[in-house]
Design a binder for these strands. Structure first.
Lengths: 358, 358
DNA sequence: CTGAAAGCGCTTACAG
DNA sequence: CTGAAAGCGCTTACAG
């Protein structure tokens, strides 16, 4: 935990320039010969202030180049207009699409949002939540880091800051959660491949350390069992979650003794990387090897070949989570618990009927 | 300009829970029977406080679950520890790589950063800067939106908040700027293709509305002229800046009457999209058509084929810009003006010697 | 090394 | 419809 502005003592340093003189509420009040109370109310469009007075005040604020001091206001009201969002990695387009949806919801309600990656570091995640509390954040949307302890999960709520989870749920946490139905979604992809006649189907990527990872692997296993296909643990290559990871996994995948003819990938990034890796090895993804993705990122439809994947409703997740938080801030209580988005199959060119591998 | 917490009047609403009683500095002071001044100094590791007193105070803060109130501190010191960053689109990996570098610099100095996209909306950009000023931001790093008027450019500095530009420079702005040398960089790519024997080289994507766009087109034109190749305006397809854009431009590119054998692309995303589009049309990118990218994103080395491109130093840009801002906040004045990162060629498989198109 | 007191710039009862 | 005054939770001279 750190204190102080920039954690330094006596940090008063050179301002950029002249800054003639700080304009504040009282400056407006004085130059207009009225009270600060009236100015304050007028700027916030209170019906308690006469229309003509309000207009005069607003005009003066504009003319003087007045900058509203939110820290002062927030100190008084204990509302900051700040909402924090922390996810694994904002550069991952999966989270990017969630963030975009959150951003557009929050924009509408004039909230400022503060973003952070935690890169699955519990430490970094806690620092972020503490900073947010220090800034008087109104709420937080998080996709919890692997290994988040229950007390960190509750840190926000315990200090009066509502929290909403996205994309991942947390064992034993009662926080409202919005995510896709991973088990169902992956079964769609697996069943699609089974329907095309594939029997040796690998599962590439993901980790058992997240709810998402466990659910997807379980969904894949269940689909195989249901089709009475034996589950071979050797057909699972856990780990990869990025395009680079998928690309590197291609070598391992192609050398599996079981010679799988299809791969259910953890997500679109892994699938695209895997397809590139397969192509680099001289095989043709989509015809020699069928590949499915997960998420239906914007890139999926323009990859080569176009990726068969599962729409995971990122935009929906972001939108609903933001709405739930805003509703909560407005006083209404959304029911807690997990809200699942129902995934949908998107069939494109990266999957084709079974053909034995030569 | 909007005022008030969430721009509402009287927003005191239901907190999440009980929140027994707010712990503040004075709570610690009282329970320990000392003054708030001492507590304040101790928490910030002031040498004015005795070591044993400090430890006792810190322990008590921890035990009580004290949350430091930054708004109050900031109101007093006029330093917030907040730094704003606004770019075109954080989902674009080009900016993503810049942001990552900024983040890691700022993390080290315990600054909080607030991020926003402006999507080239001058309005959205101004709202962001105003919000940052309201929050008492210590500084801002921006990649200015197309059409930013000079007064918006100065808004931050005029109110005492230092600003640094990244990736794009702004006509007539004296703000310190960090970006790649676009004109030089694109000439590397163009010369590489000329060296391979190509004579009909298209330029795909980009816009004349940014400094980057103008510089890259100019660099391409200059390289052709120097090699005494006639510049054909019909070989320019302006516009695309995304993977989707590059993908869609493939049709136009392939139907050009000049039958170009190579394409210099605006960036890696356009190049990858274009290659996918070319492959979708049944041609082989890298052998039938040579393609160069720009930026050397992480994806470039694992695309199919691996992309020949120009390293544009995103991480360097982010790191240097963050350092420059921090130095400025610490009182030292970095010289203004444009600081160019020197790009470097990365030759991979997407370019090959000239072969006439059939 | 420690404490009493003022003040940062707002908002909010309260009084008129 | 408008004003005088208290207070949000810190930090900082200043005094001891």
């Amino acid at each position: 935990m750190s204190y102080g502005p920039g954690a330094r003592i006596n940090p008063r340093v050179a301002w950029g320039g002249h800054v003639a003189q700080k304009i504040k509420l009282s400056t407006i009040a004085e130059t207009l010969g009225i009270s600060t109370a009236t100015v304050s109310l007028a700027l916030r469009d209170s019906p308690l202030v006469a229309g003509t007075t309000r207009d005069k005040i607003k005009e003066q604020a504009r003319a003087l180049g007045y900058i509203y001091n939110r820290r002062a206001a927030s100190l008084r009201t204990s509302r900051s207009g700040i909402i924090g969002v922390v996810v694994h990695d904002i550069m991952n387009p999966f989270y990017g699409e969630i963030l975009k949806a959150i951003e557009s919801e929050l924009d509408r309600s004039r909230h400022t949002f503060i973003l952070s990656n935690h890169y699955d570091s519990v430490e970094k995640q806690r620092t972020f939540i503490e900073t947010l509390l220090q800034l008087g954040g109104d709420g937080v949307i998080m996709s919890p880091a692997i290994g988040t302890p229950p007390e960190d999960m509750q840190l926000a709520e315990d200090n009066g800051m509502p929290a909403i989870l996205v994309a991942r749920s947390m064992e034993g946490s009662a926080l409202p959660t919005y995510r896709g139905d991973d088990s169902y979604g992956i079964s769609l992809a697996t069943n699609h491949l089974i329907g095309l006649g594939h029997r040796s189907i690998a599962m590439i990527g993901g980790t058992d350390q997240t709810s998402t990872g466990r659910d997807r692997y379980q969904g894949y296993v269940n689909a195989l069992r249901k089709a009475e296909i034996e589950v071979d643990p050797g057909l699972r290559i856990p780990g990869p979650r990025s395009m680079q990871g998928g690309f590197e996994a291609a070598v391992h995948f192609l050398s599996l003794p079981q010679k799988p003819t299809a791969a259910v990938c953890w997500n679109d990034l892994v699938a695209i990387g895997l397809m590139n890796g397969i192509a680099r090895a001289g095989l043709v993804p989509g015809s020699d090897i069928s590949v499915t993705g997960y998420d239906d990122l914007e890139e999926a439809s323009i990859s080569m070949p176009a990726l068969t994947t599962v729409w995971n409703g990122q935009a929906e997740v972001g939108r609903l989570a933001a709405r739930a938080l805003l509703d909560r801030l407005a006083g209404s209580h959304e029911p807690d618990g997990i809200h699942l988005i129902k995934p949908e199959m998107r069939i494109r060119q990266s999957t084709s009927p079974y053909r034995a591998r030569t």
